[in-house]
Simulated assay, not measured.
Amino acid sequence: MTKTIKIYIAGHRGMVGSAIWRALEAKGYNKLVGKTSKELDLRNKEAVEAFFDQEKPDVVIDAAARVGGILANNNYPYQFLMENMQIQNNLIDSSLSTDVQKFIFLGSSCIYPKLAPQPLKEEYLLTGPLEPTNEWYAIAKITGVKACEAIRKQFGKDYISLMPTNLYGTHDNFDLNTSHVLPAMMRKFHEAKENGNTAVELWGSGTPKREFLFVEDLADAVVYSLENKFQDNLYNVGTGTDLTIKELAELIQKTVGHTGEIKWDSSKPDGTPRKLMDVSKMEQAGWKAKVGLEEGITRTYEWFLENQETFKQVKL
């Protein structure tokens, strides 16, 4: 890949998209294209087609999605299913019709069955029922994976899907109604500390195990996949290690400096018991995560402190 290829990053203002943009700029790529949702509604097929006809990108990286945690998925199932399919279908179809040679589709580990063997291998896709609390988002992402696989099979184009584990990092969403577990915990512990180290109530039992990937590591994996040709269509991206939600809470609590009590509300859902990714396929392709969880949480909290007035809050 030359540094002058035109790369369109869908969702370039989000946590993932902005990290990819910074990573590409750092590597010297100088023809990056991004549009805000106000400038281009990716749910609008005609608008997306017109954009592709005008810009004619060489590479498309799909980091655009309607995202959220358990609460948001439960409350807005139709939007999580339909809007994600609209976004990715328009991007994938326009990429095919304008002869985009490389397409990188970003999904999520939630595409795998709820009770699939651990760690999760790529071949476990579609082998069992999904986790009910986020199946709407998962089904949308599965259709994106399959669309890219179909194009690869039928047209021979280098369209690949990267499935990251739970992501966190700078520019995350810290809105307590729509955020994922790690940023939500960080904000709760911070506000409790500011209020005199009051008790923090967290959902579930604390026993499920989760894996977390710093967003800059995912961006590095995207750049690596851009600059190398992979043999298959689907690759997991993660660290290959996990910890319990309770251990995560204690690590964030320590980083933030909160000294109050943690109360677990076991009446709230836990979600999937465990979601650990098998990342051996990506490692065999030559890429491995670099940022440890403690370092990543520290860097995220530093960013949070600097951006409390402006950090992203998704309004549904």
Rank of each mutant, 00 (worst) to 15 (best):
V181Q: 15
T272W: 03
N166M: 10
L32M: 05
T207C: 01
N197L: 00
G107A: 03
E25Q: 12
L126V: 01
E55T: 14
Q231F: 13
T133P: 14
F174P: 15
L40M: 09
Y29F: 02
S95L: 09
T4Y: 03
G69I: 03
D53W: 01
A116L: 04
G169M: 01
Y8E: 08
M82H: 14
L125Q: 11
D41I: 02
G28Q: 13
A219Y: 10
D53R: 09
K315F: 06
G14W: 15
P117V: 03
P132A: 00
N30F: 06
T239D: 04
S18Q: 12
L125C: 11
E83Y: 11
L71R: 15
Q118A: 11
F103V: 02
W136A: 00
R13W: 08
L276E: 11
T244H: 05
V100E: 02
T259P: 00
L120V: 15
T298L: 04
K27Y: 02
L218N: 11
A289V: 07
A219F: 05
P113C: 02
Q79M: 08
F311W: 07
P129S: 06
R43N: 14
Q101F: 06
F51V: 08
V314S: 10
L202P: 13
A10C: 09
G238Y: 04
Q101I: 10
V181S: 14
Y137H: 14
A192F: 03
P208D: 02
Y137I: 02
V59G: 01
K281H: 14
G69R: 02
D93P: 04
I87Q: 06
T241Q: 15
R299H: 13
V314A: 10
F105R: 04
K246Y: 03
T244E: 00
N30M: 05
D270Y: 01
L42E: 07
A219R: 09
D172S: 07
